[in-house]
Simulated scan of single mutants.
Amino acid sequence: MKIVSIVLLVTSAFLSLKHGWDAFQPAQAAQAKMMASLGIHPQAMPYFGVFSILMGLMLFFPQTFFLSNVLNAVTIVLIMALSLRAGDNRTALIEIPFLSMPMILIWLKYPFKF
């Protein structure tokens, strides 16, 4: 169980850090179109990037592990809600496995506690 928890922790942190870093890169046409359909203004992307990077780093500390997973889950639910509002059911369905990751991490608890 501890190995599964560590793998999920590293994967979740990597995804958060990657998405945070990508928010600072120039948006490709497909990414800009998706953000516009969700109602997210391009000028807000750096704020989402900082938020995502902070969530990824918070995962590694036992004091902020739970909060980071909760914020990650809330962010994913927000993306799903915005997608459904925009009529993009496919994106909302794609997010379901990513929503399960923070929930499983909360259930498994912080893996590096001695």
Rank of each mutant, 00 (worst) to 15 (best):
F98V: 11
K109L: 14
A92M: 00
I106D: 05
Y110K: 10
L59G: 02
L108C: 10
L82I: 03
Q43S: 15
S68Q: 05
N89D: 05
Q43G: 14
I76T: 08
F65T: 00
I94H: 08
Y47R: 11
N89H: 12
M80W: 03
I53H: 04
L71N: 03
L84D: 00
P46F: 14
P46T: 10
P62M: 05
L67R: 08
T91A: 14
F61Y: 10
V74S: 01
F112V: 02
F60C: 09
F48L: 14
F66K: 15
P42M: 09
V77Y: 04
A92L: 00
H41N: 13
M45Y: 07
V77I: 10
L99S: 11
T75E: 05
P102A: 04
T75K: 02
M80D: 01
N72L: 13
L57S: 07
F48V: 12
N69W: 01
N69I: 01
E95L: 11
N69A: 02
S52I: 08
Y47A: 15
F66Q: 12
T64P: 02
N89T: 14
I76A: 07
A73F: 05
S100V: 09
S52P: 12
N69Y: 01
I79E: 00
I79V: 11
E95P: 04
P97L: 07
N89E: 11
V74P: 00
F61I: 06
L71G: 09
Q43P: 04
L57W: 06
L93V: 08
A81H: 09
I106G: 08
F65K: 00
P111D: 11
L78V: 08
M55A: 08
N69S: 00
P102E: 07
I106M: 15
F61T: 01
P46S: 12
F48Q: 12
S100R: 02
T91M: 13
P111Q: 13
I106E: 03
N89K: 15
S52N: 12
L54S: 06
L99M: 13
A44F: 14
M103I: 15
A86D: 12
L99P: 08
L82W: 03
I104R: 06
I79F: 13
P46N: 08
A81Y: 12
L99Y: 14
N69Q: 03
A73W: 01
I79S: 03
L82Y: 07
L99G: 14
F60V: 08
H41V: 12
M45I: 13
L82K: 12
F66L: 09
I106N: 05
S68K: 02
P102V: 02
E95H: 15
L82F: 06
I53F: 13
A73E: 01
I96C: 04
I104H: 13
F60H: 04
I79M: 07
Y47M: 14
S83R: 04
Q63L: 09
L57C: 13
L82S: 08
R90Q: 14
F66H: 12
F60M: 07
S68Y: 07
F48K: 06
